[in-house]
């Protein structure tokens, strides 16, 4: 088919592609080096020496743990809501054709298609108008809204690959709708939901723009990092936190990749 696969790639193209990939990865690798530098007053390069002590110091920081705890809590609740709502929506859109079907797909995508700052300020002013005090739940409200789309994308792709005759066969053999769901639909859907859920978790765990508008006094881990970015006070601790965040987000992405690689795509389009 693609005959030019047999030919070697031109040297210029190889160099440009390799340079592009290096450009994407070197800055992230740099974070790993900085987490072990002995310098704590500036961003000096090359690091004057290497040490492991910042890992221990970060471990003992209550504010880091508190932010991490809040981030995990928010991401877990938002993911749970997004999995339920996204699956329901995907089931409806992929099983039936009905008036307004396209509009629903658009509505689901809208929260990530519009700049985050719009979602953020819209929610904030709505909370103000409705006199809702800021809390963990206001953060969850924002996060779940834009997490629905990743679950939805993964679930729709899987529903399309699952043939409707399987469901009909199950009903013909005497199972009722709930049994069919439990024994036929859910096992088929499970890995797609797991992948979608992990991506939703990663998305929520990392979100900062909407969160700055919906968080009030609480700080999620990204908010904690943002404060450090604007006014650096504890560079070594920030370096370690940055490294941990990179590691924590890489794992679900790798897992989601292995769960969905045969066939459908990870809903990475339009984070």
């Amino acid at each position: 088919m693609r005959s030019d696969r047999q030919h070697r790639a031109p040297l210029g193209l190889k160099i440009a592609a390799a340079a592009g990939l290096l450009f994407l990865h070197l800055p992230i690798l740099l974070i790993f080096v900085y987490a072990f530098t002995t310098e704590d007053k500036s961003y000096q390069w090359p690091p004057p020496g290497y040490t492991m002590k910042w890992l221990g110091i970060t471990w003992q920081r209550p504010d880091v743990w508190e932010s991490l705890g809040l981030s995990v809590r928010v991401a877990a609740i938002s993911t749970a809501i997004a999995v339920v709502l996204g699956t329901l929506c995907a089931a409806a859109v992929s099983r039936w054709k009905f008036f307004g079907r396209e509009t629903i797909s658009l509505l689901v995508i809208l929260p990530i298609a519009l700049p985050g700052i719009i979602t953020g300020i819209a929610l904030r002013s709505a909370f103000n108008l409705a006199d809702i005090p800021f809390s963990t739940w206001t953060i969850v409200l924002g996060h779940a809204t834009f997490c629905i789309v990743v679950v939805y994308n993964n679930a729709v792709a899987r529903f399309r690959r699952t043939s409707a005759s399987l469901i009909e066969a199950s009903m013909d053999l005497g199972a009722d709708g709930f049994q069919t769901f439990r024994y036929i639909v859910l096992p088929n859907l499970a890995t797609a939901l797991l992948a979608g859920g992990m991506l939703a978790f990663a998305l929520s765990f990392d979100e900062v723009i909407v969160t700055t508008f919906t968080a009030g006094q609480q700080a999620t881990l990204p908010i904690w990092m943002l404060e450090e970015l604007v006014r650096p006070r504890q560079r070594p601790v920030t370096n370690v936190v940055a490294m941990v965040v990179v590691l924590v987000t890489f794992l679900p992405i790798l897992a989601a990749y292995y769960l969905t690689r045969d066939g459908d795509q990870i809903g990475g389009h339009g984070k």
């Binding site: 992230i28 740099l30 990663a202 900062v208 990475g268």
Partner: peptide, 21 residues
């Protein structure tokens, strides 16, 4: 994966890396 990992890694960490650079 080389495209996906940077896409999904933390936005703030990426900005922070450039502050270091």
């Amino acid at each position: 994966l080389g495209i996906m990992l940077p896409l999904w890694s933390s936005y703030l960490v990426k900005v922070y890396a450039w502050k270091l650079i």
